[in-house]
Write a protein that binds this DNA or RNA. Structure first.
Lengths: 246, 246
DNA sequence: GATAAACGTACATATATGTGAATTTATCTG
DNA sequence: CAGATAAATTCACATATATGTACGTTTATC
């Protein structure tokens, strides 16, 4: 069950992140199609907790720096080493596609760092974006780092759906694809999850954390050069990863 | 009316900001005294929206960098000029007390930047902290920047409560104190809002925004040297504020 | 300066939602 | 490797909660 008002809080904050200017109660209510009274209660709650204020009288609400302060606290622990951001930045620059660092989240994989392609047609993803772990290159690069038991445990919770023509719709299909990936030397996906979307990924274990790097983009651009892209990922990781660390 | 699940989202995030490590459903539920099932729904919602993930299987949840990305977006607009942080940092260092930048939020004043005192006994405040605008030095330094009509509009919404022995409990009392402040050259408060708490503040208009700076601490330390502290604030602002700007 | 429109706020009520208990799944222990 | 213990899910129901409606206030229009 989704907790509506919890989601609404996030949506309001995302709204401010997009518009980047103060908004009145009425504007917010209209934007989301929420009743004024409900919007009023929400804004009052956020204000009371110190996350919203009124920069100038009658000009509407805007978030206080409190959210930033909190987010910085949270992110200071176990931050990704700086070279991982260089990694995705370099990969995106060299391939012209979207590059990301991905982490596991149950049956899903979450993007925890993203550098987007500059191309007009591109894979649009943001930090926090989630995709099924078994039906994506990046996700399978995570699964490769699991033990058989851990994978089985994940499989039990997966609801196998036919996202696209090539989606693996059984445990066996996923396991087979994982074996292929090992032989091939990297993980790939051609429209397994999202139509026309292709990607190449490899595992990226960092200090006990199971992560992966992926380069993804439209099938017509990635397809002809998956090998090449995968090799580039591997080389770039080799170049940037400190030699001492695991 | 306070929206409970909205507040809960913020509390969960604050919890992570404090503990700075992954927490399981059970730990979170126990910490807040929430039922497991409700906690489950909340965590599921936050995960689904991409704000929480499971760094390693069965080791609990932790926020993704998405919150940080969002907060940075929000804060990039109209950021406070860097010298304002230097201002509160210097003031806190020189006085040994807590120094803050404060902004209006209806009948309240919000702390939007804070450098805390290092003293054992100190004024504890964080970014986002809110105090009544009429019953604090920092708040009155904001009111001084309002027109009479704007002030009247605020007064109508204030619920005058006797927070402490010297709280102004009427419009006249507030207006009188504002006149005193003008004559005195700065705003002050001795336990008006919080017992044993004293502070000195001056208006700090920046680029059309109505802000104030305040130095606050225990009455026994601030009391004997309000004048001195207020003068220091004024001098420090003069020193740091760029000459060209308003 | 008067009138109209928009906006923000309060409250009672029907209903969407949170929750206690039951079920399933995972982990620990001898 | 069982059996026990703890954690994670599910579900039906009662109740806490979102909202329709109404009112006062502020801003825009003429």
């Amino acid at each position: 069950m989704i907790v509506r008002q919890a989601a609404n809080v996030l949506e309001i904050m995302e709204f401010f992140a997009q518009t980047r200017k103060p908004a009145t109660l009425a504007e917010i209510a209209d934007h989301f199609g929420w009743p004024r009274s409900s919007t009023f209660n929400l804004l009052a709650t956020l204000s009371e907790k110190g996350y919203l204020y009124e920069p100038r009288p009658r000009a509407g609400f805007y978030p206080t720096p409190r959210l930033l302060a909190m987010a910085q606290m949270i992110s200071e622990v176990e931050p990704l080493p700086p070279w991982t951001h260089t990694l995705v930045a370099d990969l995106s620059a060299e391939t012209g596609e979207t590059a990301s660092i991905v982490a596991p989240a149950g049956v899903m994989a979450v993007f925890i760092d993203v550098v987007e392609s500059q191309a007009a047609i591109r894979y649009f993803a943001t930090i926090g974006h989630r995709v099924p772990i078994h039906a994506t290159a990046s996700g399978r690069a995570l699964l490769l780092q699991y033990s058989q038991e851990e994978r089985d445990s994940v499989y039990r919770k997966i609801e196998f759906k036919q996202y696209g023509p090539s989606t693996p719709i059984s445990i066996d299909a996923v396991e087979a694809e994982l074996r292929n990936s090992i032989d091939r030397g990297f993980c790939q996906s051609f429209g397994d999850y999202s139509r026309d979307l292709a990607g190449a990924a490899i595992p990226l274990p960092i200090g006990g954390r199971r992560l992966s790097v992926v380069v993804a983009g439209p099938e017509f651009r990635i397809g002809p050069r998956v090998q090449e892209v995968a090799a580039l990922i591997a080389r770039t990781v080799d170049r940037l990863r400190p030699k001492a660390a695991a």
